[in-house]
Simulated scan of single mutants.
Amino acid sequence: MQPTDDPAPQTTTPQILNGFIIFSSFAYVLYTIITIDAGMTRGWTLQEQLVRLPYDNWRNYEDALEMSPITTKTTINVIIYLLGDWLSQTVFNGKDVLDFDARRVIKNGFIGACFGPLVHIYYEWSDVVLPVDVGVNRLYKIIMDQTLYLGVKCSIYIAAVGFLNGQKGPEIQDSVQTRIKPIMLAAWKFWPLVHCCTYSIIPARHRVLWVNCVDLFWNAILATKASGKIEEEGEVVSK
């Protein structure tokens, strides 16, 4: 009897839709990056264009930051939250990059949009209350970040995830109480060292960008934990 090969995995309709979303998103970002100098490149060689692209994109970011700081930081926050949740569902869990729940990613992006202005306000307020030009304030800022700010932000995040998933008040409260401790413990292993850089070598105007870049990995961890993936007697349970 001839051995039969396992059937090849079939591409499902959701995966096709997810593939379109991913391709469109990355294509748009790439197009935006490479056309930053549109209308200025007449006579430039390809090498000259490639050399100018990083500088001109950074300059465009700084101009946007100067003119519309809250909008710019919120936009970056949304992108990071979208990417973080996508990574948490796929790469961070060893799954195919198209095997994700698009609705969950969008919900996470919405939460990122809500957090954007709040994060901007917090960092502005933090610099007023604890100016970093006083050396010891850097330590105080890290302590404040990892207690008051982290606890409030993570609690709101978990509650928002629960609310968008249709949970009621008691369920949301129980979810926050159950998940806030492991998230805080994970954060204490991750963020203090990051914030040693945040409040020492990163200029004030770029702190949100720096934290957002690191957030790409942290939000993937946070999204996984907040979505209720826990190990129970060797079995992964999703709530």
Results as ranks from 00 to 15, higher is better:
234 G>Y: 10
221 I>T: 02
134 V>C: 02
191 W>D: 01
22 I>C: 06
237 V>H: 09
196 C>W: 13
83 L>T: 04
57 N>L: 08
226 A>P: 00
20 F>Q: 08
99 D>L: 10
131 P>A: 11
129 V>D: 01
3 P>C: 01
106 I>A: 15
100 F>V: 05
48 E>C: 10
74 T>M: 12
2 Q>W: 06
221 I>C: 11
26 F>A: 15
88 S>D: 13
32 T>K: 14
179 R>E: 10
192 P>A: 06
70 I>E: 04
85 D>T: 09
79 I>C: 15
100 F>Q: 02
179 R>I: 06
50 L>E: 09
61 Y>I: 03
123 Y>T: 01
231 E>W: 12
61 Y>V: 01
233 E>C: 08
72 T>D: 01
133 D>H: 07
141 K>A: 07
164 L>G: 05
186 A>W: 05
212 N>C: 04
76 I>N: 00
130 L>F: 12
209 L>G: 13
87 L>Y: 05
14 P>I: 05
195 H>W: 04
179 R>F: 03
55 Y>T: 15
105 V>D: 00
171 E>F: 09
73 K>D: 10
179 R>L: 10
93 N>Q: 14
146 Q>N: 11
76 I>H: 01
200 S>P: 02
109 G>C: 13
38 A>I: 12
226 A>F: 00
144 M>Q: 08
30 L>N: 07
223 A>I: 07
27 A>W: 13
24 S>P: 00
216 L>H: 00
133 D>L: 04
105 V>I: 05
96 D>H: 14
59 R>I: 13
40 M>A: 10
114 C>L: 12
177 Q>P: 00
169 G>H: 11
201 I>W: 12
229 K>F: 12
43 G>W: 08
65 L>E: 08
108 N>G: 04
104 R>D: 05
171 E>I: 10
147 T>Y: 07
63 D>P: 00
163 F>P: 00
203 P>C: 03
210 W>N: 03
144 M>L: 09
62 E>F: 01
221 I>L: 14
148 L>C: 10
95 K>P: 15
148 L>N: 09
216 L>S: 08
192 P>H: 08
208 V>N: 00
175 S>Y: 01
91 V>E: 01
200 S>W: 15
15 Q>T: 02
56 D>Y: 15
84 G>I: 02
89 Q>V: 12
10 Q>A: 12
33 I>A: 14
122 Y>Q: 03
221 I>K: 14
188 W>F: 09
14 P>G: 11
100 F>A: 10
159 A>P: 02
43 G>F: 08
180 I>H: 06
18 N>R: 08
143 I>G: 05
210 W>E: 02
113 A>H: 06
120 H>W: 15
17 L>F: 08
226 A>S: 14
29 V>G: 07
229 K>M: 09
2 Q>P: 14
61 Y>L: 15
6 D>E: 12
41 T>Y: 03
147 T>W: 06
142 I>V: 09
75 T>K: 05
10 Q>L: 12
239 K>H: 07
128 V>M: 13
44 W>E: 09
197 C>N: 09
92 F>E: 02
106 I>F: 15
79 I>D: 00
37 D>E: 13
211 V>F: 02
89 Q>I: 11
239 K>W: 04
56 D>H: 15
120 H>K: 03
132 V>H: 07
60 N>V: 01
59 R>E: 14
67 M>S: 14
26 F>N: 14
65 L>Q: 05
